[in-house]
Amino acid sequence: MHLLYPAVLAALLFSTGLYGVLARRNAILVLMSVELMLAAVSLNLVAFDVWLRDAMHSGQVLTLFLIALAAAEIGIGLAIVLLVYRTRGTSAIDQLRELGESAHPAPDEPAAERTTETTPT
């Protein structure tokens, strides 16, 4: 089999997941897109491991580790999303802005403070 087939499929799958991460609003859908990106990485690992005939099976063992890490990530991520939903009442990631800087800062002291802080020297 030509190596291009799995490699191109993995690249396209990664880009699809990237679109999902950037364009989705619900946090759980973002987690699903992250799963797609991890699956693309797994396909790459397996394909290159089979291509190289690695004696230590590095790619496949790392794929197994990646699957376990994805399970841990999805558990923690869902716990955090559920906690946020319980306390805030929403899981839309563009409404959870309590920790972010405001895009239009107030014209008094925060702007002055920021200009003094971020002035390059």
Binding site: F14, L18, Y19, L22, A23, R25, A92, I93
Partner: peptide, 19 residues
């Protein structure tokens, strides 16, 4: 209807460029 956020065109451009 609110499954997608407002930055769909940017996301589409970024993903197409990366692909």
């Amino acid at each position: 209807p609110d499954a997608d956020s407002g930055n769909r065109p940017v996301a589409l451009a970024v993903s197409l460029a990366s692909a």
